[in-house]
């Protein structure tokens, strides 16, 4: 058995979709090339951009940081990072520490923002409330608000997230199955909000399968936080993911074809289905909001914080 690229006998990966065999060096190079190709094809970066990486310390965000750092080393962009500490005991601190070490290693500006400091409550405390709406609902909304604020404070022109191929395909299928055409218009490699205060978001890893990102960090010996969130539960996303992975066993190209198909219809979807939102301000925090209160503040009001 030999590497299809260089002939090395130490093969570490077999690509099911193409039958390609790769040694460690050729595998690492293939991942980096793929992400760089996405950046170029989708025009995710402009020279002089300051990119804020949403850095949890997990495999996807650490890989995003590593790949974008190659653009920083070529003086194309500047890089900074933010880590959100949701306040989850025995889980989040490891990721925060790993994120800090990566930022120090690369010498980039890094900020850790905690839910407790910003909103006066931790996710653990929210989950002790009897009528909570589920951990992911709060976590998603608070994290998005914190990252957007950090982008403005740090002068970032783009926010990079670690969404991989599996995440994107799950998002496409979930929204399609739920008939959520508005959310369907918001997916993609680059998402721009109607409100100027929301920084453009980019996803350099969206064409790389989750498993390949996991192998990349192990092969490159990058320190990452491999662990499961204690609040992870049987969500709709989990169910959809299971179905897609089952299909992918017999049809190894199915995730790519789902993504390609979505990319082809996205333009029409946006034109026909995108909703126009009112451009207002949240009365409580001043963040952009279509309603009197932004989503984060409406949750805080409900929680009595």
């Amino acid at each position: 058995m030999q590497c299809s690229q260089c002939g090395n006998s130490k093969v570490i990966y077999k690509r099911e979709q193409s039958g390609q065999l790769l040694c460690k060096d050729c595998f690492i190079e293939s991942i980096e090339k793929k992400a760089i190709k996405t950046v170029r094809k989708e025009k995710l970066l402009d020279k002089g951009d300051k990119v804020l990486v949403a850095l949890s310390g997990g495999k996807d965000s650490v890989t995003t940081l590593e790949i974008l750092n190659s653009f920083r080393e070529m003086n194309v962009i500047d890089l900074c990072a933010v880590t959100v500490d949701e306040g989850i005991a025995n889980y989040r601190q490891d990721g925060v520490d790993i994120a800090k070490r990566h930022a120090e290693r690369l010498g980039i500006e890094h900020k850790v923002v905690s839910l407790k400091e910003d909103y006066g409550i931790t996710l653990d405390e929210i989950m002790q409330r009897p009528n909570h709406k589920g951990s992911c609902t709060y976590c998603g909304v608070f994290r998005r608000t914190i990252i957007n604020k950090a982008a403005r404070e740090m002068g970032a022109t783009k926010i990079a997230t670690g969404h991989n191929l599996d995440d994107e395909v799950q998002g496409i299928m979930m929204n399609y199955l739920e008939g959520n055409t508005d959310n369907l218009t918001k997916l993609g490699a680059k998402t721009e909000s109607q409100a100027e205060e929301f920084t453009v978001k980019i996803k350099p890893l969206r064409e790389i399968p989750e498993r390949e990102i996991g192998l990349y960090v192990v092969a490159k010996e990058l320190e990452v936080h491999f662990d499961s969130c204690p609040y992870a539960m049987q969500s709709f996303r989990g169910e959809v993911s299971e179905v897609i992975n089952q299909l992918a066993e017999k049809h190894p190209t199915i995730k790519y074809s789902t993504l390609r198909g979505y990319d082809k219809i996205k333009g029409v979807l946006k034109k026909e289905m995108q909703k126009e939102y009112a451009h207002g301000r949240c009365k409580r925090c001043g963040e952009p909001s279509a309603n009197d209160l932004c989503k984060a503040c409406s949750f805080l009001e409900e929680l009595g914080v």
């Binding site: 990966y13 460690k24 996991g214 192998l215 499961s228 989990g238």
Partner: peptide, 25 residues
């Protein structure tokens, strides 16, 4: 200590390490 594919035959005295890279949530 070296990454290998799953088709690799396990030999006597090998040390096989499995690293979980994907979790459910």
């Amino acid at each position: 200590g070296e990454l290998v594919i799953e088709d690799t035959v396990i030999q006597e005295d090998d040390e096989i390490q499995l690293v979980q890279i994907i979790y459910g949530g």
